[in-house]
Amino acid sequence: MLRIPCPHCGARDEAEFSYRGDATVTRPGADGDIAAFHDYLYTRTNPRGWQVEWWQHAAGCRAFLKVLRHTVTHEIRAVVTATGTLEVPPA
């Protein structure tokens, strides 16, 4: 079971959180076309390794967080608030 260190609340059980997708994609602006929105919504790198993900601390502080997590070991290396940035380490 994941224990996700919420920057506001401390380490909490994964049961309090909900995963909300790859956080490396950015919603295109008003001028985005179908191709841009298609990539934003559908195309995924889906790495076997480190990934930056959106998680919401839904049953806690409701904050949307960016979580750097390894998709094989499940190690969580860093968590930042929504406006923060996380670098994906080389595989």
């Binding site: 909900s18 909300r20 956080a23 919603r27 959106w54 919401q56 839904a58 409701r62 904050a63 949307f64 929504a82 406006t83």
Partner: peptide
Amino acid sequence: MQHLEFHLASAWP
């Protein structure tokens, strides 16, 4: 509610 919160956090902070 989650939809609103997500877009405030991710798309239009």
